[in-house]
């Protein structure tokens, strides 16, 4: 019987790690067996099964966050080969190796690739990114939304609070109070809703305070980076228009 040597294909990864929020970061190299149709998550799962570095040394398995695995939840955002994106939709076959993974440092790093996106949820709370319908009595049905408008609004509603836009924005940092593109686009979404519109001014006024819309510097990296293709810069400009109108209205007491 002829002896066959099968060249085992491998996947190389270079991962920026961090043991705890206040610990320094370091890089570890990994080499794992290749399987067809792998994505970055399945590569991380492989490391979890056999947590050894490229040199064969045992190490703690790499921590990451993921959930839906179909690019709708926003949990697995990380910097992959220099660009922030979802790990679940990052296919190994389409990535240059070694695949460089790093946490999105705009956010506090919890451990390894896990980050804390709390500031985004706080921003949504601040701008009241919801439709208030609770009350002490039945308010009855709200106004209808035109189907064409609903289809348009659906595009904005695809936002999954993944944080990629904030990561790519040069003005989201410790020195700047900019709220970030995601929340501004959500204000546009909820201000467009026939019922949400009733609290329009309240949302705009929140964006006209410290830590609002004014930090946008028009670098437009957000719209280039958004995994859902949301027209973030159009949303920002549209809300710029609305806040400008609101500014003059409140000055003139209209």
């Amino acid at each position: 019987m002829a002896e066959t040597t099968v060249a085992t294909k491998t996947v190389k990864l270079s991962i920026t790690r961090q043991d705890a929020p206040d610990k320094p970061s370091y890089t570890e190299e990994f080499e794992i067996p290749y399987r067809a149709n792998m994505n970055v998550i399945s590569a991380l799962m492989e490391i979890q099964r056999n947590p050894k570095t490229k040199d064969g040394q045992a190490t703690a398995p790499v921590c990451w966050e993921s959930n839906c695995l179909e690019e709708v939840c926003g949990a697995c955002s990380m910097v992959i080969n220099g660009k922030p994106r979802q790990a679940c939709s990052a296919l190994v076959d389409k990535l240059e190796q070694p695949i460089k993974l790093a946490p999105m440092r705009t956010f506090p790093v919890v451990r390894d690739l896990v980050i804390n996106r709390e500031r985004m949820f706080n921003a949504l709370k601040r701008v009241k990114a919801w439709i208030p319908i609770d009350g002490t009595y039945d308010l009855g049905p709200g106004p209808r939304m035109a189907e064409t408008k609903r289809q348009w609004a659906y595009e904005l509603s695809k936002c999954m609070t993944c944080g990629v836009c904030l990561e790519s924005c040069p003005n989201v940092n410790d020195r700047n109070s900019f709220i970030g593109p995601a929340a501004i686009s959500q204000v546009r979404l909820f201000n467009a809703h026939p019922t949400g519109e009733m609290n329009k001014e309240e949302r705009l006024e929140t964006l006209m305070e410290d830590g609002g819309i004014e930090g946008c510097g028009n670098s437009q990296n957000c719209v280039r980076s958004c995994p859902k293709g949301i027209p973030l810069t159009t949303s920002i400009a549209a809300i710029n228009k609305d806040t400008t109108k609101q500014l003059f209205k409140s000055w003139l007491g209209m």
Binding site: K83, S168, P170, N171, N173, R175, N176, G215, Q220, R224
Partner: peptide, 11 residues
Amino acid sequence: QSNLNTGQYQY
């Protein structure tokens, strides 16, 4: 107040 990140995002 701004970071300069043209190295990473060359748009």
